[in-house]
Amino acid sequence: MNRRTFLRATAVAGGTTAFAGALWQQAFAGPAQPGPGPYGPLLAADGNGVQLPAGFTSRIVARSLQRVEGTRHTWHAAPDGGACYRDGDGWIYVSNSEVPLVGGASAVRFDATGKIISAYRILNGTTLNCAGGATPWNTWLSCEEHDYGLVYETDPYGQKSAKSRPAMGRFKHEAAASDPVRKVVYLTEDQGNGCFYRFRPTTWGDLSSGTLEVLIGTGVGAVSWARVPNPEIWLTPTRDQVAGAMRFDGGEGCHYAGGVCYFTTKGDNRVWAYDAVNERLDLAYDDDLVTGGAAPLRGVDNITSAASGDLYIAEDGDNMEINLITPDDVVTPFLRILGHDKSEITGPAFSPDGTRLYFSSQRGKSGFAAGTDGYTFEVTGPFRR
């Protein structure tokens, strides 16, 4: 039995357990399939090289190694994971820098009209800061993507010093997603045989101590968790410390919404859905299970969602799209960037009011590996809410 047949069979044989989250309710219909999107087809590229549906517009808010408009702050190279935070009547967009030694993270502050009013650093002296995630207490978890990488808790408002959180493990961190109901933080690992973790802090809201656990399972279906014995100082990598730990082919983006933690794996081009209520794993998308034409979503990477329940998944390469998966299991392109063929889309995040979507092209038009030609975009329009 090949993987396509096996996954289709397990999706059908999964039973009738009640799931939480808009997308999860359609899980047994099978992973998402191509179809028309809620916003219609993509139009011709605008002046920024971005193809969008009717009613949407784009602007460039920052360029790597150039000053952010109206400020004296130089935007970082290789912009990666990002998130938005309320700031009075305005908001802040935070972005990581995936470069060695001086990676860190920066922030752009907007007023109520969307005008940029300041930009500044919130983390310095770290390396290969890839993705991360926001916490319910309004901090940014910036994740280092190397074998001994740490999670750094930073202040998007630029008032407090960043703190390393070694209790969350030393491994090739990618993304983080907070679950305020179960009071845990989920973590992905960017290894070809990596794992999916959760961190249970001793005190919710304080990540300085707690227990790191790894997902135990054999595939789609019921799963469990086991404690990682030595998350901070190890001779055996965290992913190899627990027998039965489930392996994932290159963990990438991670996002929690409505009782479900969605995460992506680039090696097999999947979007996973972990039902935190029932401790069950399923697939929201798998390009091997697409039956209605060519798979529109490839190179899965960072992921976020809108209030409507739509998932937005950025592509690493392929044809440089952000695809969405609707609550009725339709996968479809939402936007495409032209002329950035050797880049990847990173850091999708919605403004607090849901009317603006931020993201970056990490290496821009030049495709330089150092990310010195990175672009950070904003898209405004009638997003479903």
Score class of each variant (00 low, 15 high):
147 D>Q: 13
210 G>N: 13
363 R>D: 04
9 A>Y: 14
238 T>K: 00
99 V>L: 04
134 A>I: 02
185 V>D: 10
343 S>M: 08
102 V>Y: 11
192 G>N: 08
103 G>S: 03
296 P>I: 12
118 S>K: 14
181 V>S: 14
124 N>Q: 11
244 G>R: 07
140 W>H: 01
33 Q>Y: 10
229 P>Q: 14
151 V>N: 11
366 S>W: 01
245 A>M: 11
309 G>Y: 11
306 A>P: 05
61 V>P: 11
63 R>V: 02
148 Y>W: 12
293 G>E: 13
160 K>N: 01
374 G>Q: 01
129 N>C: 06
304 T>R: 04
62 A>T: 06
346 T>D: 05
229 P>T: 04
279 E>H: 04
70 G>Q: 14
314 A>L: 05
113 T>A: 15
288 D>L: 15
268 D>R: 11
71 T>S: 15
97 S>T: 03
149 G>Q: 03
29 A>L: 08
224 S>A: 11
16 T>G: 06
119 A>D: 04
129 N>F: 08
250 G>M: 11
335 L>D: 08
262 Y>H: 08
164 S>G: 00
316 D>W: 01
61 V>S: 12
199 F>S: 01
296 P>Q: 07
365 K>A: 12
228 V>A: 10
207 L>W: 09
58 S>V: 03
74 T>I: 12
16 T>K: 06
111 D>Q: 08
51 Q>Y: 01
336 R>L: 05
376 T>F: 06
309 G>I: 06
383 F>H: 13
168 M>C: 07
131 A>F: 13
302 N>R: 02
39 Y>P: 02
90 G>Q: 08
340 H>M: 07
189 E>H: 10
254 C>Y: 05
202 T>M: 00
48 N>A: 15
12 V>N: 01
95 S>A: 09
368 F>P: 00
287 D>W: 04
17 T>G: 00
4 R>S: 15
219 G>W: 07
194 G>N: 09
148 Y>H: 14
123 L>I: 06
284 A>C: 12
73 H>S: 11
240 D>H: 03
220 V>G: 02
298 R>L: 09
368 F>A: 13
200 R>Y: 08
96 N>M: 09
157 Y>P: 01
84 C>Q: 08
242 V>P: 09
251 G>A: 00
114 G>V: 04
371 G>C: 04
39 Y>C: 08
181 V>P: 01
374 G>N: 05
335 L>R: 10
356 R>C: 09
226 A>V: 09
192 G>A: 02
311 L>A: 11
281 L>R: 00
110 F>I: 03
321 E>S: 01
204 W>K: 00
129 N>R: 04
343 S>H: 03
257 A>E: 15
24 W>S: 11
339 G>D: 10
70 G>S: 09
381 G>R: 03
351 S>G: 15
289 L>F: 08
366 S>V: 00
51 Q>E: 09
81 G>Q: 05
140 W>Q: 06
201 P>M: 06
39 Y>N: 05
15 G>M: 03
196 F>A: 02
50 V>T: 03
225 W>F: 02
382 P>A: 13
362 Q>S: 13
266 K>C: 00
117 I>D: 12
367 G>Q: 05
71 T>Q: 14
327 P>T: 10
151 V>M: 10
11 A>D: 08
147 D>K: 10
151 V>G: 05
323 N>V: 00
272 W>I: 10
1 M>I: 13
282 D>E: 13
110 F>Q: 08
287 D>M: 12
375 Y>L: 13
